[in-house]
Design a protein around this nucleic acid. Structure first.
Lengths: 219, 219
DNA sequence: AATAATTTTTAGACTTGCCTAAAAATAATA
DNA sequence: TATTATTTTTAGGCAAGTCTAAAAATTATT
């Protein structure tokens, strides 16, 4: 039984939504990310449920099954490896590669992906700092994660930075973002992805997505 | 107006068939290569004719329009560049790459293809010796072509070889395949792609596809 | 030139993946 | 808790791309 582009996209998006919550994923949330109407999502969830890729109860939202998660991780692996390729080998900037990787992730060839992995020297993260699953679907334990990738409401400690330019480090100091500080995202603004951040339990302050990307946090 | 995978495949296959004949391409020939039924091909030809990509008259076969040929050459360019990538950078053998390139050729990003071209150092031919069109759709003038790619009935002269192992050259000598010999394919056997070859006007002899690939001919 | 064989097209149908509009279920609020 | 608002599902429909079976056109053969 083969899998279509559309199905791969749904699985990938359900996976993405699952990363930042333990709750069931809503039809509307999926509709927004797939750019489809809720009715179409319902349709697809029913079909994928029959195939055993998701656990879906009408009106109750959806979660990936073990099989569905393995498939999703496989797509994520391909997506992130291709992103590394595009940035490290083809000279794209990290903000130009998403659309192309969305296409490349559907290329079907296990041996190609293995060779690509080797060619790129077995990277552990993509150009955005997201971890790359191995071929068994296991995520490498990095011990940290970019602040921008932390789920809302989960606290962690600042353990490092992904960039060490002087201007960046000066900004951190000014914001009271010091090593060891306890950080918790209270809100992410959809418009510019800027982040409301609670530092050491104080009132939230606003930082840019760019800053949040470069601050590394241990959960 | 965008183009679908299916349409790209049809255009590419009509182009391939057009390379080896000046006659109009038959519905059945296309059906065989696309692995579809003739009825489906008729349908698609009608649609592509409306879009102006082919010149099609019922029962009379089809030819690419100027626009259709440009699109086809673009796909061929992508296909052949990806083949070079797969062989030169990923370590595949030349006989393993076709299926993967069939998928990669549909990736849509002009800037990616340009960067890939540069990354591969602007190759003029793919791993099978077929010329790679430039981004304007122009084929490089190679001055030669693998014997295996010559159309049936067209004569040319042996100007070189694509391989120089001792056993191969010894075989050429035994077959009377010498530099400057006049060669004309009289038949290609579908089963193993072996070639019936007329040498200097003599009665045809049989050579393998492998040999025909490695003999270079000037038309 | 008439008939037979082959090729191509038409007609009608099916699947996938999407849509809109209306109905049903759930969640929020007075 | 009753009503309202929101979310989700159902029902019916549409386009793309394919299929089979039958009809029409072309080509080959007697």
């Amino acid at each position: 039984m083969s899998i279509s582009f559309a199905e791969e996209n749904y699985l990938k998006i359900i996976y993405r939504l699952s990363e930042s919550t333990t709750e069931d994923i809503s039809t509307n949330a999926i509709a927004e990310l797939t750019q489809n109407k809720a009715a179409s999502v319902t349709d697809m969830l029913r079909k994928m449920s029959e195939k055993g890729w998701v656990n879906y109860q009408k009106y109750q939202g959806v979660r990936l099954s073990a099989i569905g998660e393995k498939i999703a991780l496989d797509i994520v692996r391909k997506h992130r490896l291709w992103e590394v390729f595009l940035v490290n080998k083809m000279g794209f900037n990290w903000d130009e590669v998403h659309e192309i990787a969305e296409q490349l992730e559907h290329i079907e060839s296990e041996v190609l992906i293995d060779k690509l992995d080797a060619f790129l020297d077995y990277p552990r993260t993509d150009p955005h700092g997201d971890p790359i699953p191995n071929k068994k679907g296991e995520l490498p334990q990095l011990g940290y994660v970019p602040l921008a990738n932390m789920p809302i409401g989960k606290a962690g400690n600042l353990v490092g930075v992904a960039q060490d330019s002087a201007v960046f480090l000066q900004l951190l100091t000014k914001l009271n973002l010091n090593l060891g500080a306890k950080l918790e995202i209270t809100e992410i603004n959809a418009f510019d992805l800027s982040v409301s951040l609670r530092i050491d339990g104080n009132a939230p302050v606003l930082i840019s997505h760019e800053v949040a990307k470069n601050v590394l946090v241990k959960r």
